[in-house]
Design a protein around this nucleic acid. Structure first.
Lengths: 234, 234
DNA sequence: GATCTAAGTCATCAAAAGATGAGTTCTCCT
DNA sequence: AGGAGAACTCATCTTTTGATGACTTAGATC
């Protein structure tokens, strides 16, 4: 009886975001009693555990949506330890994201070697990246950049700018830069729809099927030839 | 001397996100003294003001990054009023986002009418949407869907599914659904890079230049013909 | 094996954010 | 005119969250 406005139909779920996985703190008290205070025996992998947990959470929920406590819970660690290692929330983010193998290396190689197959090879390289171990870091960067404009700087440093510059060399056109940027946008849209938004026909399609369809589209941007009009012959 | 870990170089800025525009509360006390308590004289547009402010902020900062207090400040309103009207933060989000004219209508029209010009018309329709008044709402949806997975449902309802279904009708191919999804992904990638990530050659390029380059790419996906290999004749 | 340092937890703080109830001022309806 | 109810603000509560300092335990080094 207390709902004056019934418009919040499809979005109610959004308020439950935080309760979803936050019950991981439960499983702490199992059989082993409890991690007591002081340094743990054996050699410690905690620091990396934190980075991994942070990377996953930033990838799932973005920067603002990720709390230090949630990271601590997932890494099975006290929150203070995170500050001990990484100082700041920003520090954790940097750590979670900094160890990405720069995409640009691979791109340079592909641009140099793959001739006619450049579009397909580029697609494979890019999509593989999103599905690799580095995928979480990539998602984390994009998710956070999309949510927090200030993080876009990192994005540019990490992938976009270098990728574009490298790619532009392979394009023979006065508008090479713009074309390279559009190629990047197409790749990003594809990966984001598939791996972040999870839009359906795309999210569960086979990689090769996607590449087969998409490669000619990339080729049309990379090789400006009969650009004037579309073939238009059904 | 207190920085044990120097890795947080490029990301420091991220911690300043919240201080950016939050100084809007200052301009409250100007010449008119102060909005005193009780209902304001004249007819009230406050409710819509709140929706507009919320839409803008959700578009800028995503769901988690937007606070009710920030909305209240921008709408020049007490925070409690927002609860009075919309109950919840989720309610505000629903309101801010619900009044979008569904994109699918326009798409159906374009698909039906534009023949050979379908790719270009589709691009224009879609990019115009992002630059129109509804652009903030679109950005808000995407930004929040990217950050909070639970909001993706709304995304599907609002644009993606219908757009794809409509578009798939125009594609004559066994993989029409997948192709339609890829077209959607390309459009999204373009708009997101341009309007959300602000990647540079794209963000300030002229609309027509972008359309000229991108249209043949869309055509390659929509019209499956010499799909087998790329032209490959440099 | 004493001691130095790093790893780890605990208790706690302060600020920010979502939420609420009560009170105030206006509009509208009869 | 005189309510009734809607539009508004104030003061305040409770959680959540980022952060800190003190304390405890283990590994390493001489």
């Amino acid at each position: 009886m207390n709902n004056q406005h019934t418009m919040n139909s499809a979005v109610n779920g959004i308020k439950m975001v935080n309760q979803s996985a936050d019950r991981e703190e439960a499983a702490a008290t199992k059989t082993v009693r409890r991690t007591r205070t002081g340094r743990r025996p054996g050699d410690s992998r905690t620091r990396e555990d934190i980075a991994v947990a942070a990377r996953e959470l930033f990838a799932e929920r973005g920067y603002a949506g990720t709390t230090i406590r949630a990271i601590a819970a997932r890494a099975r660690v006290d929150g203070a330890l995170i500050h001990h290692f990484y100082t700041d929330k920003a520090g954790v983010f940097a750590a979670a994201v900094s160890d990405i193998v720069p995409l640009s290396n691979g791109v340079a190689e592909v641009v140099a070697e793959a001739g006619d197959e450049l579009p397909a090879e580029l697609l494979r390289l890019y999509l593989d990246l999103w599905e690799s171990d580095a995928g979480d870091a990539v998602k984390a960067i994009y998710r956070s950049s999309l949510a927090d404009p200030t993080a876009s700087g990192l994005l540019r440093d990490t992938s976009s700018d270098k990728l574009n510059a490298t790619l532009a060399q392979a394009i023979d056109d006065p508008e090479a830069d713009l074309r390279a940027a559009i190629v990047g946008a197409m790749l990003f849209g594809l990966a984001a729809s598939r791996h972040m938004l999870g839009l359906r026909p795309l999210a569960n399609a086979k990689l090769d099927a996607v590449i087969d369809i998409m490669a000619p589209a990339l080729a049309a941007v990379i090789n400006p030839e009969q650009t004037a009009d579309e073939p238009a012959k059904k």
